[in-house]
């Protein structure tokens, strides 16, 4: 079994991260922003796994488990907030929810 070079995996992870980031920045729909954040998290997870595998250590997988947990928590809180925003403002447009503006 030929190992995939670490660089390739990291490139994929970076690509995924960039994709998520662009999603967060350009989408106004909160739901899609959440999805994009999810993508970024998974990109980080992929990088961990790849880095752990390249050194024959389990740490990378352990970290991925953490990332997974965090992602689950984030999604649940995020979705709850999303619902509240939807209920109060009648929209899920992030630019409309700017009550904290100075």
């Amino acid at each position: 079994m030929t190992a995939i070079p670490l660089e390739h995996v990291l490139l994929v992870a970076a690509g995924l991260f960039g994709l998520g980031l662009v999603g967060v920045l350009v989408r106004r729909n909160l739901l899609f922003m959440l999805v994009s954040v999810e993508v970024m998290l998974n990109a980080a997870g992929l990088a961990f796994v790849a880095a752990g595998a390249s050194r024959w250590q389990a740490d990378g997988q352990v970290m991925f488990l953490f990332v997974l947990t965090v992602a689950a928590a984030e999604v649940s809180v995020g979705l709850a907030l999303l619902l509240q925003v939807r209920r109060r403002l009648g929209t899920v447009d992030a630019d409309v929810a700017r009550r904290l503006g100075g």
């Binding site: 922003m33 630019d95 100075g102």
Partner: peptide, 17 residues
């Protein structure tokens, strides 16, 4: 400084990046 606090989530995210 107040002016930078727009309340737009996306601006904040961009600033963080």
């Amino acid at each position: 400084l107040c002016r930078t606090q727009t309340g737009r989530l996306r601006t904040y995210a961009a600033a963080m990046v």
